[in-house]
Amino acid sequence: MRSVPVVYNDYDTFLHRRDPRVKLLAFAALVLFLYVAPTWHWMIAMFGIGVGLAIVARVNPKWLLALAALQIPNILGFVAFPAIERVLAGRGAFAGDFGFGLKLAFSFPAALFVSASLFTTMRETEITDGLRGLGVPEFVCFTFEYAFLLLYTVFADILRIADGLKLKGVAIETRNPLRMARNLPKLGVPAIITVFRRSTTMMAVLRMRGYPLDDLQESRTPFKFDFGDAALLAFAVGVLAVTAGVNFGLWRVPVLPAS
């Protein structure tokens, strides 16, 4: 049986012990940071914070490096496109400002490392309980948890379907990425059929078992907001506040430029 990789990393670290509501708020702060960060230097700083959090959360470094490597084409693209544009306009490739491209390029790995550090320390049920604790409507919370469940259960089916396609001669091995990229869409139709078939039964079963989709469910996760949570929240909000302040010209920070 193929084992399905899950997002959650089972350790006991400072981040694992934090209240899920705080970690979700920290993630929200990250998202806002990506919009208000003044320059690409700030993105690199956030990337550094992300690396630190990933070490604390004991995220698998191979997994992170693999995901980071996938960002390399992004980074090159964001830098290359403005350069190509300038060349076509008759100017030198490097005669111009790469700031915006670099900011966009480095936002990806920054977001990746920070969000991986936060989400790999929360069980699936903790994430949805955290959302409930923040007052997110039950329908959204249920959909989120249901999507996780569907993802994992269907993923196991998809691995099996992929095995079947390989035996039929469809090259989906990673040793040839080009052919793999060409052939992956062939998983699409059987995967969609599997999802549809499974989700119909799942919804019927939920109705049968009396699952109330409208009422707010009681949390399965015992919430506790302690000093560590306060510290993490203060750090996240503080970073966001400082960044926004610099962006809107309220203050300056040594080392990191304002524009």
């Binding site: 069980r123 699936e124 049920t125 948890e145 249901y146 996780f148 469940l149 994992y152 259960t153 196991a156 089916d157 078939r197 499974r198 039964t201 799942m202 079963v205 939920l206 049968m208 078992r209 009396g210 699952y211 109330p212 469910q217 009681e218 399965r220």
Partner: peptide, 28 residues
């Protein structure tokens, strides 16, 4: 009426085993 389907995996609606059994109890 409770029904147990032939496709065992399609009846999984929760992430953890205990939650699967608790849903009908909580709804009662």
């Amino acid at each position: 009426l409770g029904m147990v389907f032939e496709d065992y995996s399609s009846q999984l609606t929760q992430v953890h085993v205990v939650d699967e059994v608790m849903v009908p109890l909580l709804s009662r």
